[in-house]
């Protein structure tokens, strides 16, 4: 009952309120309240995530599992950043309320928390993503093969986009007159048209398919047909 029936009931009611709220202006407010609760829970989920990270790493360190030193690094980074942020250590005083220290700005680069963002978090995340440029190059060299007509289309389009969206387009096809009958062969125009018409057609059909899938899944959840998220007794 508590483990299965109540959760099914909660899912059904929450989902139904939001759908009803859409169709009836009188119930818009219900939808707002319920969604606002969910937004608050999303913030609690960050705490859950942090707590989870804490426990996992503490366990790793205490049992001296392989790589526990890295777990210690993670833990230290976590605790320090959290202290800087939640306790607003060294926060820049709020000019409008200088007498209220807890109203201070902890995100300013002059505060330790902001400093961590600027010089640790920001370069780390940015570089992590920049690494993908290398892997995508390596993958292109090894995996992009013109095996059949489908692969040739994929490859050809990639070429047009890669060349058409840089100055290479002007170098290679800049000589074709813009207002002539062959203007569409200019790489930059070709890239724009592929994006706007051909690739949009493909994406649009994919989107419509996904939309149907999501609507079906949502209904299954709300009606209690899909119960995979429940714990087994």
């Amino acid at each position: 009952m508590l483990k299965r029936t109540v959760p099914l009931f909660i899912t059904g009611i929450a989902g139904a309120i939001l759908i009803v709220a859409y169709f009836s202006p009188a119930t818009t407010n219900w939808g707002e309240v319920v969604t606002d609760w969910m937004n608050t829970l999303a913030a609690v989920a960050f705490i859950l995530g942090g707590g989870n990270l804490l426990f996992v790493n503490l366990e790793k360190i205490s049992s001296k599992r392989p790589g526990w030193a890295y777990a210690l690094v993670t833990l230290l980074a976590f605790v320090l950043t959290l202290a800087f942020g939640v306790l607003k250590i060294g926060a820049v005083p709020n000019a409008q309320f200088p007498a209220t220290p807890w109203a201070g700005d902890y995100e300013s680069v002059r505060a330790p928390f902001g400093w961590v963002y600027e010089y640790v978090l920001s370069p780390l995340t940015a570089t992590m993503f920049a690494m993908l440029a290398f892997y995508v190059a390596s993958a292109a060299f090894r995996a992009f093969r013109a095996k059949n007509i489908e692969a040739i289309l994929l490859l050809g389009t990639a070429f047009v986009i890669l060349l058409g969206r840089t100055a290479a387009a002007a170098i290679l096809t800049g000589w074709i007159p813009v207002d002539g009958p062959f203007a569409f062969l200019r790489l930059d125009t070709l890239a724009v048209n592929i994006m706007q018409y051909v690739s949009t057609a493909g994406t649009r059909a994919i989107m419509m398919g996904i939309a149907l899938g999501i609507a079906a899944t949502s209904l299954r959840l709300i009606l209690g047909i899909d119960r995979s998220y429940l714990v087994s007794d």
Binding site: G49, G50, L53, Y70, A71, V73, T74, L75, L76, A77, F78, V79, L80, T81, L82, G85, V116, Y117, V120, L121, L124, T125, M128
Partner: peptide
């Protein structure tokens, strides 16, 4: 490891 810790705390 630093990234994991800092981003969770952030």
């Amino acid at each position: 490891s630093v990234l994991v810790g800092v981003s969770a705390a952030y």
